[in-house]
Write a protein that binds this DNA or RNA. Structure first.
Lengths: 158, 158
DNA sequence: AAAATATGTCAACCGTCCTGACCTAAATTT
DNA sequence: AAATTTAGGTCAGGACGGTTGACATATTTT
């Protein structure tokens, strides 16, 4: 007979709220993406390239924590559809600098409007409407070793 | 030429923080799950059955928003491995009431400890350590039409 | 008795990943 | 200059976690 583990101190409701919240958050863009034959992987790639134009493939792989093989088809599709362009690096011609086109920027912005609407709506429900606390909480949810990378992502906006 | 969409009012940092936070949150359990040959789908099933012992299959499908075909193999594996049991309903013998075994409860609790640790750690970083605001925010992130279902999930704990 | 329902299964397919291997062009090191 | 390393690309096979449609059985409801 397995001795029971103690469930003392567990925050089941918060765990579940996080699951449900994220599910709805990411689902926002699905219909829009589908119009282009895209999925969530495309959304992520487009988002981060738009946020950091000129980034190289390796940076994208690091941010997204995926392999180049996973990235390959998605990136190809975004380029072929005219949402992204890639340019050989001026200093290192092996690199591929990634940029959104206007079309790509527009799509990324459109999708982010949906997500922001949801987030802001949720913040409006708070008594103190404290966006900073939410940002701090979410930042605190990130693995400590990864916080610098994430912070760098946000600070070094180009 | 596509006219530029306005990116005014977009909260890129919060969008990204949410993505990174959730990624780390769900990754916590991966190694533990893998020991049993399980994945995230198993975790979800186990979690909700543990939270609502005696639930029927249809309820689980509704909560998880997946099809019975998706659920089938996962549920089978959890039953075969001794983490869940299913019992024909006393009032409606077509139904299958799902219960965790002690083994299943223990695993669910173990995994939830990991997730709670992360959540509480993040809340500790807040100046006001306000768990309720976080819960309210996450609740507000959920689609309004789904809030009653989620609330019911949390209130009617058995 | 007929119709509806809860669940289970088969089958084919999809999106999003992974691993291993191999290749070319370019940069760096020897 | 040659050897080695590196950035990115491709091929291939497979896993995870889903979807849709169809069909079946046992049970409940009409």
């Amino acid at each position: 007979m397995d001795p029971p583990e103690s469930d003392e101190g567990l925050d089941f409701p918060l765990v579940e709220l996080f699951f449900f919240a994220y599910r709805d958050f990411i689902a926002d863009a699905d219909d829009a993406l589908e119009q282009y034959g895209f999925g969530r992987a495309h959304h992520r790639v487009l988002h981060f390239v738009n946020r950091r134009p000129g980034m190289v493939v390796a940076e994208l792989l690091e941010i997204l924590r995926i392999t180049k093989q996973s990235l390959g088809p998605v990136l190809r599709q975004l380029i072929d559809s005219g949402h992204l362009v890639q340019i050989a690096g001026p200093e290192d011609r092996r690199q591929r600098l990634l940029y959104p086109t206007q079309k790509g920027r527009n799509l990324s912005i459109e999708l982010t409007h949906m997500q922001t609407r949801r987030i802001k709506g949720a913040i409006e429900l708070l008594k103190n409407k404290d966006r900073e606390s939410i940002a701090d909480f979410l930042f605190g949810m990130i693995e400590p070793e990864e916080r610098d990378l994430v912070k760098g992502l946000m600070d070094k906006q180009r």
